[in-house]
Design a binder for these strands. Structure first.
Length: 661
DNA sequence: GCGACAAGCTTG
DNA sequence: GTACGAGCTTGTCGCT
C-alpha cells in the first residue's frame, strides 16, 4: 500500500497496514470509499506554518475512520498535495471537489485535535464543515483539566503510549537538518517552510499517528461518557469553534502608521535614557533590562536592604521596589522610565507589527480550551492584557488628566481602529459589557441578601458597599476605592494583606476594612467555607451551575500553602467559570442569530465580559437591542438580573463612547 | 543555537 | 510568608 521514499528520508520503523500514504488516484478512490462508509471521521492538516491568515497553507491532509480490524481501532491515510520534495503526490485540484463534498455532509461527525486550526486550514481550500464538530483537545480539557492538552502528551498520559513523541522527535531532527541545509535558524525555517519540505514518507506517517491518537482519544473519552456528562457545556463549546473561527478570520483593523510612529517614539526615549544611564556605570556593562544587573547594582553596590523577595528568595527588582528606592540614586528613576518605554515597544508595538496580514488586519487567536476554569484565553496578541490608557503618563506627557481632555500619548489601544464601508461610511464597533458579572455570579451562589437587594434595585454595588461598610466603621461612607478593590478580590479570596498592598494602605487599615466588609457580607465568607467543606467531602471535585467540572486535589493536602492555594483556585474557578460561560453561550447565540437573519453585523472579538460587534449603521437600532437581549436572557440566575451595557467606538479603541439607545 | 526557566509586566 | 487566572518578553543558564 505504501511506497518508501527513496530520498531524502526513509522510514525504518515497521508500520502496520492500518496507516497508508495516498499518492495515486486509485488509492484516493479507495480511501474515499472508506470515508463515505463511515460518518465519524478524523482529520488533521500538516502545513507550512501557523499563520493561516497570511502565507501559510496546508501541504497535506491526514484522514481516518474507526475500523475494528486495525490494531489501534483506527484506519488512517495521509494525502500529500503541496509537499516540495519532488516526490510523487496528488494534485490538490483533483481532490478539492470530492473533499469539499465530504466535509459538507450534514450528518457527518468530524474529529480533530485543536479543531479550530484545522478548520482555518480547511477554509483556505474551500472546505466547509457541514456536520458536527468534535474537538479532542476540548474533550481532553474536560476529561482532566489539570493535565496539558497537547496531543502527544495525552497519547502518553491517557492512552499510555510512552513512545508517542518518537515520531515528533524524528520530524524535529529532519527539520533541523533541512534548516541547516538552508543555513537558517530553526525558528525562521519553521515559520517559512513548516513541514512542506519534509519527505512525504516521514511527514505522512507522523500525521497518520496523529490521526490515530486523535481517534483513540475520542474512543477513550466517549467510552467514559464525556459529551453526555456535560451536555450544556460540551454542545456550546463545539458550536463556539465555528463562532471563534469566523471571529478570528474577520480580525481587527490596525492603524499601522500609528503603531510605527509609537515604536519610533518609544525608541527615541529609550536611546535618550540609555545615553544618560550609561555614563553612570562607567567601567562596567549595565543593561537596564537585565534583572541580574539591576539586582547587583541595588543590593550589592548601593547596599540597599532587600524588602521584597521573589519566589526563589532573590531580592526583587520589580517596579514597586524601584519606585520605593527612586530617591537613593539618580539612575533609578531613569531605569524605571527606560523599562516602561521598553515594555511598550517590545511587548505591544513589535508584536502587533509581526502579526499583521497583508491588509493591516490583526488576526489574534482565542482558545476555548485554554484555561482550567473555563475562561477563554487569548494570544498572538493577547487582547486580554492590552494596557489601558495610563492617566499618570497622560499628566506627565500632556499636562492634563484624561478626564480633562488629556490623552495617553503612548496608548496602544489607539492602534485599534474602526473599519469603513467601501463608500467611506464608518462602521461603528459596539462593545457590549456585562455589568458586574462576577459579583452577580457570587451573589447567585452565596444568596447574599445585601448584594441581591442591590442588584434587584439596580443600585451601584460599590456605593452600596461604601454605605454598608461605612455604617460599621463609622464616619460616613467608606472609601470607594477600597470597596472596588475588595469586590474585585472576592473571586480569588484576597486577604487583608492583599488589599493593603494593592490599595497602598497600612495593613491595620486594610484589616479593619475587610473585617467590616465580611461583617456585613457574612454570607460570602460562610458560603466559601461551606463550599470547600462540600467539595472536600465529594472527592475534591465540583461542577458549576452549568455543569462544568473542576478537580482540585490539593484541597486535602497537608501542606498549608498548597491547601490554601487550592481553596482560592477552586473558588475562583467557580465564580470566573460561571461568568465565562455566559459570555461563551452569548457568543454562540449572537453568531447564530446574525447568520440566520443576515444583518450586516459581525462578531469581532471578546475580552472576558465584553463582546465586540462591528455593526453597519443602518441596522444598529435592530441589532444592538437584540444582542443585548440575547446576552441578558439567563433566567437560571433568578432573582438576580443579568444586564449588559453598550459602548461604541467610531474612531479607535482609546475613544470609547456611550451608545445612546 | 536552542530549550527551559525565572522574573517582570499588563490585564479581568 | 502569601493572593486568582492568563500570555508575552527579556535575560540567564546549561546543553549540544
Amino acid at each position: 500500500m505504501y511506497q518508501i521514499a527513496a530520498f531524502p528520508y526513509r522510514v525504518d520503523w515497521p508500520i502496520d497496514g492500518s496507516k497508508s500514504l495516498v499518492t495515486t488516484g486509485e488509492q484516493f478512490e479507495g480511501m474515499l470509499r472508506h470515508l463515505q462508509a463511515n460518518q465519524v471521521r478524523i482529520f488533521d492538516h500538516e502545513t507550512t506554518g501557523l499563520q493561516w491568515f497570511k502565507d501559510d497553507y496546508s501541504c497535506g491532509l491526514g484522514l481516518g475512520v474507526f475500523d475494528s480490524t486495525s490494531p489501534s481501532g483506527v484506519r488512517s491515510w495521509y494525502v500529500p498535495y503541496r509537499h516540495q520534495t519532488g516526490e510523487g503526490q496528488l494534485d490538490i485540484e483533483t481532490i478539492r471537489d470530492p473533499m469539499r463534498r465530504l466535509f459538507a455532509e450534514p450528518d457527518a461527525v468530524w474529529i480533530a485535535h485543536n479543531f479550530k486550526f484545522d478548520e482555518h486550514m480547511n477554509r483556505r481550500e474551500g472546505w466547509h464543515i457541514g456536520g458536527r464538530r468534535y474537538c479532542t483537545q476540548m474533550a481532553a480539557r474536560l476529561y482532566d483539566e489539570n493535565k496539558p492538552v497537547a496531543l502527544k502528551k495525552r497519547a502518553y498520559l491517557d492512552l499510555g503510549h510512552y513512545w508517542a513523541s518518537e515520531w515528533e522527535k524524528r520530524l524535529d531532527e529532519e527539520v533541523n537538518r533541512l534548516a541547516k541545509a538552508r543555513k537558517m535558524k530553526k525558528t525562521d525555517y519553521m515559520a517559512t517552510y513548516g513541514y512542506c519540505e519534509v519527505a512525504i514518507d516521514l511527514c505522512g506517517f507522523y500525521c497518520c499517528y496523529d490521526v490515530d491518537f486523535t481517534g483513540q482519544l475520542f474512543s477513550l473519552y466517549e467510552r467514559w461518557g464525556l459529551s453526555s456528562h456535560f451536555p450544556r457545556v460540551w454542545n456550546n463549546e463545539m458550536q463556539l469553534i465555528h463562532t471563534l473561527c469566523d471571529m478570528e478570520e474577520y480580525g481587527c483593523l490596525i492603524d499601522v502608521d500609528y503603531v510605527q510612529y509609537l515604536k519610533a517614539e518609544t525608541g527615541k526615549v529609550i536611546d535618550r535614557l540609555s545615553g544618560m544611564i550609561e555614563p553612570m556605570f562607567r567601567g562596567s556593562t549595565f543593561n537596564p533590562g537585565s534583572d541580574a544587573d539591576l539586582r547587583s547594582f541595588l543590593y550589592e553596590h548601593l547596599m540597599i536592604p532587600a524588602t521584597t523577595r521573589t519566589k526563589k528568595n532573590q531580592p526583587s527588582v520589580e517596579a514597586d521596589v524601584l519606585a520605593a528606592f527612586a530617591h537613593l540614586h539618580p539612575a533609578i528613576p531613569l531605569i524605571m522610565e527606560w523599562r516602561e518605554a521598553d515594555k511598550i515597544r517590545t511587548t505591544w508595538t513589535d508584536s502587533i507589527l509581526k502579526k499583521l496580514d497583508h491588509n493591516g488586519v490583526l488576526h489574534g487567536s482565542l482558545q476555548n480550551e485554554g484555561t482550567t476554569s473555563g475562561r477563554l484565553s487569548s494570544s498572538s496578541p493577547n487582547l486580554q492584557n492590552f494596557a489601558n490608557e495610563n492617566d499618570d503618563r497622560a499628566v506627565r506627557l500632556t499636562g492634563r488628566h484624561i478626564e480633562d481632555g488629556g490623552h495617553d500619548p503612548w496608548s496602544i489601544r489607539r492602534a485599534f481602529i474602526a473599519r469603513k464601508r467601501p463608500d467611506g461610511v464608518v462602521i461603528p464597533r459596539v462593545i457590549l459589557d456585562y455589568e458586574q458579572i462576577e459579583l452577580k455570579a457570587l451573589a447567585y451562589y452565596t444568596k447574599d441578601p445585601i448584594m441581591t437587594d442591590a442588584f434587584l434595585k439596580g443600585e451601584d454595588i460599590h456605593q452600596r458597599t461604601q454605605v454598608e461598610v461605612g455604617a460599621i466603621l463609622g464616619g460616613g461612607p467608606a472609601p470607594r476605592r477600597l470597596a472596588k478593590i475588595t469586590a474585585f478580590g472576592l473571586s480569588y479570596c484576597m486577604s487583608a494583606k492583599g488589599l493593603s498592598r494593592q490599595a497602598k494602605i497600612p495593613e491595620d487599615e486594610a484589616e479593619r476594612f475587610m473585617e467590616a466588609f465580611f461583617g456585613r457580607y457574612s454570607s460570602i465568607s460562610n458560603y466559601r467555607e461551606a463550599f470547600w467543606a462540600k467539595v472536600r467531602f465529594e472527592g475534591c471535585q465540583f461542577a458549576n451551575m452549568f455543569g462544568r467540572p473542576r478537580r482540585v486535589p490539593g484541597l486535602t493536602s497537608d501542606d498549608n500553602k498548597i491547601r490554601k492555594s487550592s481553596e482560592r483556585q477552586s473558588f475562583g474557578a467557580l465564580i470566573q467559570g460561571t461568568a465565562a460561560q455566559l459570555t461563551k453561550e452569548s457568543l454562540v447565540r449572537i453568531h447564530k442569530w446574525l447568520r440566520e437573519t443576515g444583518y450586516p453585523a459581525v462578531l469581532v472579538s471578546t475580552v472576558h465580559d465584553e463582546i465586540w460587534i462591528d455593526c453597519d449603521p443602518s441596522c444598529l437600532t435592530v441589532v444592538v437591542p437584540k444582542v443585548k437581549q440575547l446576552m441578558e436572557d439567563y433566567p437560571e440566575f433568578a432573582p438576580i438580573p443579568i444586564t449588559a451595557s453598550a459602548d461604541y467606538i467610531d474612531t479607535n479603541w482609546a475613544e470609547k463612547k456611550k451608545l445612546p439607545l
